[in-house]
Structure formats: C-alpha cells, structure tokens
Design a protein around this nucleic acid. Structure first.
Lengths: 237, 237
DNA sequence: AAGTGGTCTAGACCACATT
DNA sequence: ATGTGGTCTAGACCACTTC
C-alpha cells in the first residue's frame, strides 16, 4: 500500500467518524510526519487528496482544518467526482437496455472532430434506451472508433460497455470531458422516456479517453428530468 | 513566480500553440528537469497540473503524451473548472440584477443544516433575478450568515457579491460544492425568465466556502434552459 | 537492459499568520 | 519570535513498458 494513500485514508476515516469535527485543527504536517513516520512531502501529498475531496482546508501560517461541512455534505463527499459507466454508477439498481440501433458507419464531420479521427475511419453507432429497475431513464447515443474498441457485440450493449472495455479488452479508461445542458424533449424522446411532449431533459455530452490518450467514445445522453443529478466540487485556483 | 507554475504554463502554451501536437510525446521528466533547471518533483508538480486540466496523459514506463484532443476541446480547456460569481463568469457581458427580496431572517432548519449554523443564527436572504445584456437569465436565492459576511447593502446586490466579499471584506473564497438538477419552471419562474409555463430550467444548488473553512453561502439558482451550460473533467481514481 | 514515471526521504528556505 | 504550510532540491528505490 502506498503510504500517502494509507495516510489520507486514515485521516478521512477519522473525519467521517467524527474523531476530527468541523473546524477542528488537524495536527501540523510535522506532527503528522512523526506519527506516520513519513516525510513532509508525503504528508502533503496525503492532505492534498483530502483538500481535493473538499474535506479539509489548509491555511499557510495557521494550519489544516476540517471544513465546516453539514452532515449531508460529508456523506455526499465520498461518492462524487468519479468517472464511471451507468452500470457502475448504480450498483444498487438493475440496469437494462433497449438497443435502438447498433451499426458501423463512417464518422460524420461532427464526430470526426470530437473523436479526432479522419474521414475514412469507421465508428460504431450505438443508440440505446436505458432502464433503471425497469423504468426508462436515459437515451444514449454513442460513437466509438472500431480501431480503438474492436469486437463489440450486440449482447455487450445489453450490459456494460465500460466493463467490456476494461475486463475483456484490458484497456484502461482515464478520463472524460463532459458538458451538461438542458432542453425540451423531442417527441421521440418523450415517448421513449415516458414523458409529455416538451418536458425538460438533462443532456450530457461526453468524450471519453483511454490512458493511452485516445478518445474512445463520444456520447450524448438525454436524461429524464426527474432522474438527473450531477455533483461537483469547484476550487479557486 | 513559482517555478512549477512557470513550467506548466510554458508547456501549456506550447501545446495550445501546436508546438506539441496530439499524441506527441513530451520530453522525459529527467530531460525537462535539465531544460528548466528543476528537480524531478517540481517537474512532476508542473505536469500534474496539465493532467488535471485534461491536456496530457502520463504513462509509467513509457512517457508523457499530449492527449488526443480535438481542436474545440483544446480551446475549451483553458476556461473550465473555476469557481467564480456570475459577474466574473461573463466578463464580456453586462450583468444586472433585479432584487426581489433582501432581508435578514432566522435560518430555517434546511439552511441551518446546509450552512452548518445553529437555529439562533441570522442569515441574509437575497432573492434576485439576474440579467445578461438585459435579458433575464437566472433567478438566484441566496442565504449568507451575517456573522460571516457582515455589512451587505442593497446596492451591493446590484453588482457582484463575490467582489464585495473579496475586495471590501478581504475574505478569500476557497471552493464550492455544486449539485445540478433539471425540472419544470414554476409559474413565477416562467414569468420572470420570460419562459412558458412548464418550460425546462437548470437548477444549481451550491454551498460556498471561504479559505477559513466557513460556509459563507447557500444558493439555489434557476437558469433558463437555453442559457445553461456546465462543463467538467472527470478522472478515474 | 534501459528508460520511464511513481513514491519517498531529509533537509533547505520562503511566505504567511499568530502571539 | 514561533509555528505553520508552500516550494524546491538531489538523490534513492520501485513498478512498469519497451526493446
């Protein structure tokens, strides 16, 4: 186990368990270094993880403090800021899919640009309605370059593509760039998502990248307005 | 100037200028260290900034590579992931406000919990419609503890509260925790935002924190659906 | 085997806040 | 003046990829 992971995990537990409370001052980096038998840089690395999670605040000159979080915020914080597929995001729910289209096409200019591929490259076109516990939740339209993600089968679409990519192809997913907008449902979307015409939908457009740096997916997902939540932590420089 | 800021800035410029192109390999950390006369840890710190911005990817054993970004993605990347007020987010537009309510009230239990204050604490209640270039864009309802942000005047609300906090009170804003949802506009919201009844709105609920760790605002902002965009970069682990 | 990034150290000096 | 976190160094060893 990496030392800084161990230290940040240990401190996170103590905060979540209430051993350090809101606004409490943590021991200094020097003291923590003595306690964990680690150098200052390692302690700093551990604390910076908790800063990025929004749990603590460091103030040069005064010390490190537990943020003034409400209980709900603390519960929330363990979960967010992860990049996962729908299946992994909802471990407690049954995720199923209706496949509207699954084909191989030439990428149009829009997709070419998003995936940074040339006009001769082929992509999968995957168009699915996805259900959580049987109720329609989101319509996803995904394009993936066949060169990057080969061998997709229709039965894979019923389950988790991300799992296929990581477990079967042994590729590693690194990051995603996501843009969220809001609009009215089209007639088709309303029908598939069991909404009224013109009801709100949340739209997430996303480009996914592998650790190799290659863009492996462009997807647009249209969510029922009552089942769309997204959370983030913003920091100031 | 901090050395790692200088190095990451220099490399960012080279990437954005196309000096390093998509999928290009950057010099090794050792070589960069020689070039910039910096130690390995400092180079690492500089590169990690670019990783968090989504510009590059590091692969142990092989090297550091420019991500396979489309041109648009590259342009986008300079902007996002900052925590700022509406005024600062729209430097090119004129931001004005209509103040619907400005009062001091006792915090109700919901707000108490969000701001982590007690039932005896007073908060400002600020309720504004905000206009970009004269057209209604968002309705914001904000609560701020008067103990944390004293001396708010009605004329401040016409402009930028964030500016008041930083310039006048000399407090430093550190971070925000934001949750985004989608729903139908209420009749009141539709009227103020010049929408039809039941049209979509994007809702951002946010808690803001100072560098002291104190929660200084809870706000719910209801956005016209055609003027609501939010962008983020997600990473795995 | 050679080269890469990841982790870690022991210490230095600096910028800032508090006393 | 003291204590804090921020930056930086010069090196060590490790895990991983590529040849």
């Amino acid at each position: 186990m990496k030392k800084y992971i161990h230290i940040s995990g240990d401190l996170r537990n103590k905060i979540l368990a209430g051993e350090y409370k809101s606004n409490d001052k943590l021991p200094s980096e020097k003291d923590l270094g003595a306690h964990y038998e680690a150098s200052k840089m390692t302690i700093k690395q551990a604390l910076d993880i908790l800063v990025s999670e929004g749990l603590i605040i460091k103030r040069r000159g005064s010390g490190t403090f537990v943020k003034d979080l409400s209980k709900k915020e603390i519960d929330r914080i363990a979960i967010i800021n992860q990049f996962r597929g729908k299946t992994a995001e909802n471990p407690d729910k049954q995720v199923t899919s209706k496949v509207l289209d699954f084909s191989v096409v030439k990428a149009d200019p829009f997709i070419q640009n998003k995936l940074n591929i040339s006009e001769d490259d082929f992509v999968y076109h995957i168009y699915r309605v996805r259900y959580l516990n049987g109720s329609p939740t989101v319509i996803e339209e995904t394009h993936m370059p066949i060169d990057v993600i080969p061998g997709l089968k229709k039965e894979t679409l019923q389950a988790s593509i991300y799992e296929y990519i990581e477990e079967e192809l042994h590729l590693k997913i690194q990051s995603g760039h996501r843009t969220i907008t809001v609009r009215k449902a089209t007639d088709f979307e309303a029908e598939e998502l069991a909404l009224e015409k013109g009801d709100p939908v949340g739209v997430a457009e996303q480009i996914g990248y592998l650790v190799t740096g290659a863009a492996f997916e462009h997807s647009v997902s249209v969510h029922r307005y009552d089942k769309f939540v997204t959370e983030m932590i913003l920091t100031r420089n």
